[in-house]
């Protein structure tokens, strides 16, 4: 009956079985690989190492946001504010860095040193995260409503600061460094490396720490979690701060890459982050899903959209293709899980 006797004593009831979560992650990964191979047959020059890398590196921002969104979804909460935070923190970083006394309003900033501007921008991002936590945790308002509100609030602030336009003049040279720094011999940008580090840390937290397990318990049954002594309010607060910090850094890096603060940056990114999490098997009701699954979900979306633009289809078709990918993926997962647990 037992096959794991490695941990000191014989375990009698431990016939291990692959968890549904590993099963779904494996399924999502195989779909991503399968789609890639399929696209390689259809699209000339698709099957190249550089192309594979591009699928990941072009999507570093959404994948990074997906980490925070995934943790929150697993805990049973939405975060639709990440796109707005990307815009806000980018605009703030620019505004704080622009030297005081420029020619026009849009070229005049606060003249902070860059490090202070970054901290200030992060502070703005965390403020939105704290607002999310406040309304969700303290006032018990459904997270989808709260973060829909803060999504507009964050973007609204960005819009006011940029007066509906862009801020891109009067910036110190150091501003453009972080986002354009390359490592490993000019082939990989720093943000991509940061994304990889973030993924590794997130997987560690999710699988190996008590913090990660708390997230699943809260998402699986919040009432039982409270009656088991878990401080759900504090945990969800941490998750919102964590997610908004990631979004803040993404915004700062994007602003640096383009050397501009633009209030429409990151538009619809919150939905892309949600979509890749769902594609990756994260349950919208909470308690189920993984960061690795979300990563492969992002690959599915990337393959579908990039293959489409490589095909005869015009880029206008990409939303339709995304929609088809979402429906097919979710149906497959539901069907496969039901079959497995029959």
């Amino acid at each position: 009956m037992s096959d794991s006797t490695k941990i000191g004593r014989t375990l009698l009831h431990t016939r291990r079985r692959m968890s549904d979560e590993s099963f779904i992650t494996l399924l999502v990964a195989s779909v991503a690989v399968g789609l890639f191979l399929f696209a390689s047959i259809l699209v000339p020059n698709f099957f190249q190492l550089q192309n594979m890398l591009n699928l990941v590196t072009n999507n570093w921002a959404v994948i990074s946001l997906g980490v925070g969104v995934t943790f929150l979804l697993v805990s049973g909460n939405f975060d639709l504010s990440v796109g707005g935070i990307v815009a806000l923190s980018g605009v703030l970083a620019v505004w704080f860095s622009q030297s005081a006394g420029g020619g026009s309003a849009l070229s005049t900033g606060l003249g902070f040193p860059y490090w202070l501007a970054v901290i200030g921008a992060l502070g703005g991002a965390l403020a939105i995260g704290a607002l999310n936590a406040l309304f969700v945790v303290r006032f018990r308002i459904p997270s989808i409503i709260v973060t829909l509100g803060t999504m507009m609030l964050a973007r609204g602030f960005a819009q006011v600061i940029t007066q509906g336009s862009q801020r891109n003049t009067n910036l110190p040279d150091v501003f453009g460094m972080l986002g354009n720094l390359t490592v490993f011999g000019a082939s990989v940008k720093l943000p991509v490396v940061l994304m990889v580090i973030l993924l590794v840390i997130a997987v560690f937290i999710e699988k190996k720490t008590v913090f990660g397990r708390l997230t699943y318990w809260i998402g699986a049954n919040a009432v039982a979690a409270r009656l088991s002594g878990i401080d759900k309010d504090r945990h969800v607060t941490y998750l919102y701060l964590f997610s908004s910090a990631i979004a803040g850094i993404v915004g700062i890096l994007l602003a640096s890459e383009f050397k501009s603060g633009y209030s429409n940056r990151g538009t619809l990114m919150e939905f892309d982050a949600l979509v890749i999490a769902l594609l990756g098997g994260v349950a919208i009701a909470g308690g189920f899903g993984s960061v690795v699954g979300m990563f492969f979900g992002a690959l599915i979306l990337a393959v579908v959209t990039s293959a489409a633009t490589g095909l005869v289809l015009s880029p206008d078709w990409q939303y339709i293709l995304k929609a088809i990918a979402v429906f097919v993926a979710i149906l497959t997962q539901t069907w496969a899980l039901a079959r497995r647990n029959r």
């Binding site: 968890s19 699988k207 190996k208 720490t209 008590v210 913090f211 990660g212 397990r213 708390l214 699943y216 318990w217 699986a220 049954n221 039982a224 979690a225 088991s228 002594g229 878990i230 308690g287 189920f288």
Partner: peptide, 24 residues
């Protein structure tokens, strides 16, 4: 936690015993 396994249900009320400086 009906959507979790037996194994994942049992230890929830004693996180101290489950944690080695935060690591599970």
């Amino acid at each position: 936690f009906t959507s979790l396994t037996i194994r994942e249900n049992i230890p929830v009320m004693n996180l101290k015993r489950l944690s080695n400086r935060g690591v599970f």
